[in-house]
Structure formats: structure tokens, C-alpha cells
Amino acid sequence: MWDYVLDRRGQIAFQAFQHVSLVVQCVLLGSLIALALAVLVYRSPRLTGLANGVSAIGLTIPAFALLGILLAPFGFGITPAVIAVTFYAALPVLRNAVVGLAGVDRSLIESARGMGMSRLSTLARIEIPLAWPVILAGVRVSTQMVMGIAAIAAYVLGPGLGGFIFTGLSRLGGANALNSALTGTIAIVVLALVLDLLLLLLGRLTTPRGIRV
């Protein structure tokens, strides 16, 4: 196992970078989309219900199924991988952002408006900071989840560590099959935990001291 890893350390590092890069970019993109959507809907109970419904239903769709469906129009390659990973990354953030924004005390918003802050600055300076811990929790859930989904994306020739797992699968019983699958799996677990830790740290650094628990 160790020899296997040493032999391929270049390749592993490259795939790990690709995997993390895919996940981080997609989570970033997905979070921005989700936050924008949440800001648009959180004021209307109806749209909020709709957004919650979409995120709940979206999360029930199996990743492998969605990747399959995306293959039909886009073919193999990075496009279906990016779309699928971004899709799943956005959903938990959407849900948490809506909940977080809706949970901000109305009286705080009123007092902000009452002291002459505009809608936009109330949103940027009061509501989002107060909802931030909840939003960030959603980002953490997203990241954990799409680390695994990105592994499946390797099957439609997306980049990343999933490649090692599928190589292992295709050679199962043969030399290095187990090493390959183990490398992929363990690397993903480790990277997922590292990312989670980084997000936790980000949370500590970006959460206003007054609302830290």
C-alpha cells in the first residue's frame, strides 16, 4: 500500500488537487447561487415554501441518476460533473440560508430600518451577518456531501480521486485493485475532514463575536 502511494504520489497529488478544486469551486458557485435565491425568496412565505420544497426534492434525486441524465445533453467530460456537483452543493445552502434569514429577529430589522439603513445595507450589515452561522453550517454539509458525489462524477470522466476508485473496481481481483480503491477512498475522507476543519475555522473567524456560541 505504502509503495503504491509513493510510486504514484505525483498522480495522487494531482488528482487530489483536481478533486478539491472541483469541489471548492462548485461549492463556491453553488453557495452564491443559493444565497442569491434565498435573498430573493425569504420574504415571501410562499416562495420560501417553494424553495424548501425544491431543495428537499432536489436532495432526494440520486446523484448517479442526475449524472446519467446530464450525460444525455452534455456528453462525457467536465460539464456534467460541474453541473451536478454545483446542483447538490447549492441545495443545503439554499435551505439553511432561507431558514437563517427568516430566523433573524424582525425587531432588529425594524430598528435598522428605523435608523435609516437602506434595504440593501440592512441585508448586508444585519441580516446576512446574523444568519451567517446557519448559512455556513449549510456550506459545511454541502462540502461533505459533494466530496462523495465528485467521486461518482469520475465515472462520467469528471476529474478527481474517484478515478482511483473506478480503476480499482475495473481491476478488482487483480494487482493493486485494492490499493487503488483504498487510496481514492481514504484520500477523499481525509480531504473532506480537512475541508470541514477549514470551514469550521472560517466560521470562527467570520462569525461576529457577539453571536458566537
Binding site: A151, I165, A181, L182, T185, V189
Partner: peptide
């Protein structure tokens, strides 16, 4: 929680091995 971070496909392949 650590287990949850493992990709499902990796688990399938390892168990199959």
C-alpha cells in the same frame, strides 16, 4: 461522522474486494 465523509462508491468497491 468520519465514516459519513467516505464516498459511497469507495465503500462499495472496498467491500466488494
Amino acid at each position: 461522522n468520519v465514516g459519513q465523509a467516505a464516498p459511497a462508491i469507495g465503500l462499495f468497491v472496498l467491500l466488494a474486494d
